[in-house]
Design a protein around this nucleic acid. Structure first.
Length: 215
DNA sequence: TAGTCCCC
DNA sequence: GGCA
């Protein structure tokens, strides 16, 4: 029996999603407005853009990056690049408020040494989604992944080591932080198509910050 | 080629 | 599960 069925879960709640995977409810809600301001500053230097997959499809999610390198895709494949291919300049530096949040959330989830060197910033508009996939373009699979949700809510799917493994769906709201690593570091995950809405701070969109040690 | 953050 |  779920005591919080149909109600908002308590702030600071913690859910074990899988071996090595933890959902920290509302962990970033206190600094959410500051994070949104910082995202706007990064986007002014490295604009959000919808990239093309190796199969030739344009992704529905718009992306930019900050940190020592950025995740990019084009017809040639997925990779981390030190320069923004759209501007030829290095990606904006990782802001302190980003690095601290990721480090602290990882430590709370059981990964005390985590020091991210890259942050992928995803912007979801209504209808945007992320197909079930693995994060395996990083050099370091020993480090976890820290994923921060801001703005509109979304449904996160977390599966298993194989594409055909069953998935569990988690509603993610503004300020929620998901950390996965260890045994589940390479497990399949994705995001359902975003439903339209209006968030008081972010407006009609969802942002996702994904911190990794990639280099 | 091998792999696939896409599509159905 | 198979594209292009």
């Amino acid at each position: 029996m779920d005591l919080f069925d149909g109600l908002e879960p308590p702030q600071g709640g913690r859910e074990q999603m899988a071996p090595g995977a933890v959902l920290l409810r509302g962990r970033a809600s206190g600094c959410g407005a500051a994070l949104l301001d910082v995202i706007a500053g990064i986007a002014a230097e490295a604009p959000f853009r919808r990239m093309v997959t190796p199969g030739g499809f344009t992704m529905s999610v718009a992306m930019t990056n900050c940190g020592a390198a950025g995740w990019v895709t084009d017809r040639r494949g997925y990779r981390y690049a030190a320069q923004d291919p759209q501007t030829g300049r290095p990606w904006p530096a990782m802001p302190d408020v980003f690095a601290r949040l990721a480090q602290e959330a990882a430590a709370e989830a059981g990964y005390p040494g985590f020091r991210p060197d890259v942050c992928l910033i995803n912007r979801y508009e209504p209808g945007a989604k992320m197909a079930l996939h693995q994060d395996k373009d990083e050099r370091d699979f020993a480090s976890p992944i820290v994923s921060v949700s801001l703005g509109l809510p979304a449904v996160f799917r977390f599966g298993g080591a194989r594409r055909a493994d069953p998935v569990v769906k988690y509603p993610l709201r503004h300020g929620d932080v998901v950390v996965w690593g260890g045994e589940s570091r390479l497990w399949f995950h994705g995001i359902d198509a975003l439903k339209p809405g209006a968030h008081p701070l972010a407006g009609p969109v969802r942002f996702n910050l994904t911190f990794r040690k990639a280099l």
